Amino acid sequence: MSLEAFKSRVLPVKNKLYRFAYRLLGDDSEAQDVVQEVLIKVWDRHDTMDELENMEAWCMRVTRNLSYDKLKSRQRRMTDSFEEGFDIGATDDATPYKSAETKDTMRMIRKLMERLPDKQRHVMQLRDIEGYSYKEIGDILELDMSQVKVNLFRARKQIREHLINTTEYGLQ
């Protein structure tokens, strides 16, 4: 693919790619980064791009995949800082015992979330930690609204049951 072909076939879809990435990520700078990475990938493979029938579809797929990668890395960062950044009922006058108990509970929830099936874990992460709406989660994970709600319900139920068994009965 020549520079002229790149300018005529790829650059016109740049704004579509940005809007798609922005819808998935919800962050302007991350969406711009994704589009830039897509354009670099296209240019790096410019010698094989002439074989593609639908350049726009390929670019959209790469945009989606890179956006999902960013979401996963964001999730890892959130999971790594989950205990520190998630203060349930923490107050300035919390006793050391209460603080330790809360920290242990948050650590247990993080471990329980890691054991959930992928869909349930992603939906719970996006809803309860990231604060996305059901519709946004459906768009990000390509699920319909009912699937989002069912997966969230099942994830919360499983974690709740495990926490009750652990705290009430000492079962693990």
Results as ranks from 00 to 15, higher is better:
127 R>D: 09
14 K>N: 05
172 Q>F: 15
93 D>M: 00
129 I>K: 06
139 D>Y: 14
139 D>L: 13
117 P>C: 03
162 H>C: 12
136 E>C: 10
51 E>K: 09
22 Y>L: 08
110 R>Q: 08
144 D>W: 12
31 A>C: 06
115 R>F: 08
145 M>P: 02
51 E>V: 03
24 L>D: 08
86 F>G: 00
91 T>H: 03
8 S>Y: 07
130 E>W: 07
112 L>K: 10
51 E>W: 06
135 K>R: 13
47 D>R: 03
62 V>R: 10
53 E>N: 05
78 M>Q: 09
72 K>C: 05
115 R>H: 09
123 V>T: 06
80 D>N: 08
88 I>L: 15
22 Y>E: 05
167 T>R: 15
93 D>L: 01
80 D>G: 07
29 S>V: 02
170 G>D: 04
172 Q>P: 03
102 T>W: 10
169 Y>P: 03
152 L>T: 09
141 L>M: 14
127 R>K: 15
161 E>D: 13
79 T>E: 15
153 F>L: 14
170 G>L: 04
63 T>Q: 12
144 D>I: 05
107 R>A: 03
110 R>I: 02
104 D>K: 11
21 A>K: 08
114 E>H: 15
143 L>W: 09
2 S>G: 03
22 Y>M: 02
92 D>T: 04
68 Y>T: 04
170 G>A: 05
